[in-house]
């Protein structure tokens, strides 16, 4: 019996992910858990997360068995990371005072303010209003994703489709072959990354209406091969 397992690290809106998965998959059972044995046995693993990455890692590392189960399960079988579930796969993050990630994907996580565009203000001369900040933080809302490489999870989704984002830190990938999608917000950043059996998105497919549901549907029909 195929089981879709959503890893519960106590952060973020796991129920939204669960409801969206239930919507696209009527045949497989879905559960939210932090039980190592259930995570190891998962046919499909989803690693979601919102909020602070430090809290996320504290939750993971507070239980060594859980951490090992997640690390082992990420090595084979279809896995989907969402938001922090992408950022945690990188080597390092500037967030939470600087923290090492799982190091599965090449690159690091940076704050948007480290890019000068975000501090820039402009004067709207036509309307003669007060200076405005050009790129608000968090990056919140629907932005376009350019599909940089083909992947089974992009099936049926148009290039430059909009997805829903909400984040203040972004992924800077150092391995171009791992970048599946890019988005622009003051600077280009990795919106989707993949490596073998892993696919991970900065955006929230569970909140991205038709395109997001299509991606989740592709995921639960994916065998983990590229």
């Amino acid at each position: 019996m195929g089981k879709i397992v959503i890893v519960d690290l106590g952060t973020g809106n796991l129920h939204s992910v669960c409801k969206a998965i239930e919507h696209v998959s009527s045949t497989k059972s879905v559960c939210i858990t932090n039980q190592p044995s259930v995570i190891r046995a998962a046919e499909y693993l989803i690693l979601p997360g919102q909020g602070a990455i430090g809290t996320w890692f504290n939750q993971l590392q507070s239980n060594p068995e859980l951490e090992q189960a997640v690390r082992d399960r990420l090595k084979s079988g279809p896995c989907l990371g969402i938001c922090l579930g992408l950022q945690a796969l990188l080597e390092h993050s500037e967030e939470s005072g600087g923290i090492n990630g799982l190091g599965i994907l090449g690159g690091s996580v940076k704050h948007f303010s480290s890019n000068p565009h975000h501090a820039n203000t402009y004067l709207d001369k036509k309307n003669n209003t007060t200076p405005q900040i050009t790129h608000k933080i968090p990056h919140m809302g629907w932005n376009e994703v350019r599909q940089t490489l083909p992947h089974p999870l992009w099936q049926g989704i148009a290039d430059r489709e909009r997805f829903y984002f909400v984040h203040s830190y972004y992924v800077h990938s150092t391995h171009p072959q791992q970048i599946m999608g890019q988005c622009e917000y003051g600077n280009l950043f990795t919106a989707a990354a993949a490596k073998g059996n892993l696919f991970a998105t900065q955006f929230h497919p569970e909140k991205s209406q038709h395109a997001g549901l299509q991606l989740l549907k592709n995921f639960v029909n994916w065998n983990g091969d590229v």
């Binding site: 007060t130 405005q132 900040i133 608000k136 968090p138």
Partner: peptide, 12 residues
């Protein structure tokens, strides 16, 4: 609105 959007760096 324009006074608040100019004063804060979060979305409004």
């Amino acid at each position: 609105m324009s006074r608040i959007t100019a004063a804060v760096s979060v979305p409004v």
